[in-house]
Each structure stands twice: as C-alpha cells, then as structure tokens.
C-alpha cells in the first residue's frame, strides 16, 4: 500500500490497521468458538461410546488403546458404566468399582487443599459432575467406598454433627500431625484457632488432626486457660520438657 501524505493519510493507515486487527481478532474468536463446539461434540460422543460399547471396545486391544488416548486427550472419563438393575440391587458389576476409582481420584486431587478430609456432599457433587449421565446418591458413594475396604481400609466415613466426612489419608501417612507439632514447638501448646490461622486449614481439618493426636496420647487438653480457649499441650515438644527433666535428674 502506498503511503499517502498528510495527517489524513496517517489516520487512514491507522484506521486500516485497526480494521485488520479487529478482523483478525474476530476470526480468531470464531475459530476458537468453533473448535470448542467441536470439542464438545467430540467429548459427548466419546462419553456415549464409552457407556454404550464398553464390551466391544475392550475386546480389541489395539482399538482400546486408541480409544483411551482419545478420551485422555479431550478429558473424557472412560469409566461410564450405567448403574443397572443388578448393580443397584446386589452391588455387582463394574459400576461401584468405577465409582470407587473415581472417588479416590477426587480425594487425591483435592488432597493438597483439604489434607485428605472431604465432605461427603462435596465429594458427591464433584462425582456427579464427572458422571453427567447418571445421578449419584450418597448411598452410592458409601457403597463404593465400602468396596475399597479390602485394600486396608485407608478410607473411612465418619460424622461430625450432621455432616459426614470422608478421610482418605491413613494415620500412618498423615503429615498434618507433623505440621501441628512444628507450630506447637515454641510454646508447647496450640489452640484450634492458631492451627487454623497459621496453617490456613478449615476448622474441621484442624479439629480432626488435634483430636487424633489426643487419641494417640501425644497431646493433652487444658480447658482452664484464662482466655477460655481449649489449649492442646504437647509435653514432648515444648521448650520446658528437657529443662524439667534435667532438673529432676
């Protein structure tokens, strides 16, 4: 394009540039939208195939591998068996096993955030999001978790008030306790609020960890503190423990 002289020429060029840009943006946006749409149909179809043709897919090893790759690439969960009559009645079939795997998956994914403690209702709703085809009830979750018992029962469901919580980290592998001991170190005790604020945990997570330490015999409770808050003492980590025992000696 030949550059025309004068201010009007400059303005014209700028205008043309703007027009090109807005056109380009438009095209990019349209393309993006189209692709999203395609991806959506793609995913939808894959989901349908996964639930309808499961047996045929598994029969052919080479195709199975390709199908898995497709699913993984577009973020489709290949585990999509329907509940079915027999599963509902007797708990047989793949449905509850699949659900079990998905439950553990969710627990693993949310563990960095919640420390392995998740509300059953939250778990159910996350699960339902993945399983758009069938509705998942609380009872389904409980049954699926029950199926995992054989693997050492690392998963347990317990009630706090009216809420039900699922714990996915067995005590032997729980590092929350170490963190609490760490912050109890300077003074020998902590309160629930301190644990919450210093570690950024939820109330439930803090209480659960402290109560567990209590059960293990590592902590002691002091309800007589001046501010009325319950203090959890850790006789073994406080600064005083070594001094006292030295004095005794």
């Amino acid at each position: 394009m030949r550059r025309r002289p004068g201010i009007s020429g400059l303005q014209g060029a700028a205008q043309a540039r703007d027009q090109y840009r807005s056109l380009g943006d438009n095209v990019a946006k349209v393309r993006q939208d189209q692709m999203k749409e395609q991806l959506e149909t793609f995913r939808h179809q894959l989901e349908e195939f996964a639930s309808k043709h499961k047996n045929d897919i598994t029969k052919n090893p080479a195709f199975r591998a390709q199908f898995h790759t497709m699913c993984a690439k577009c973020g489709v969960d290949p585990l999509a068996s329907n509940k079915g009559f027999w599963a509902e009645l007797l708990g047989i079939g793949d449905f509850y096993y699949e659900l079990g795997v998905q439950i553990v998956d969710i627990c693993l994914a949310t563990r960095p955030r919640n420390g392995g403690l998740i509300d059953l209702e939250e778990l159910r709703s996350l699960l339902a999001k993945r399983r758009r085809a069938v509705s998942i009830t609380e009872d389904d979750c409980l049954r699926a978790i029950g199926k995992l018992k054989k693997l050492g029962g690392g998963y347990e469901v317990f009630s706090v008030g009216r809420r039900k919580l699922v714990r996915s980290v067995p005590m032997e592998l729980n590092r929350d306790h170490n963190l609490i001991l760490e912050i109890a170190q300077p003074r020998g005790y902590v309160t629930v609020e301190e644990v919450q604020s210093e570690l950024g945990w939820t109330h439930g997570r803090a209480i659960d960890a402290l109560e567990n330490l209590l059960k293990e015999g590592l902590a002691m409770v002091d309800d007589g503190a001046p501010n009325g808050k319950r203090h959890y003492w850790f006789p073994c980590v406080g600064p005083s423990s070594s001094v006292e025992s030295e004095a005794e000696l």
Partner: peptide, 9 residues
Amino acid sequence: ARALGMAPA
C-alpha cells in the same frame, strides 16, 4: 517423627 520426617503414628 520429627527426626525421620514421617507421621507420628
């Protein structure tokens, strides 16, 4: 637990 870097249990 602190020395070995593992959970108290």
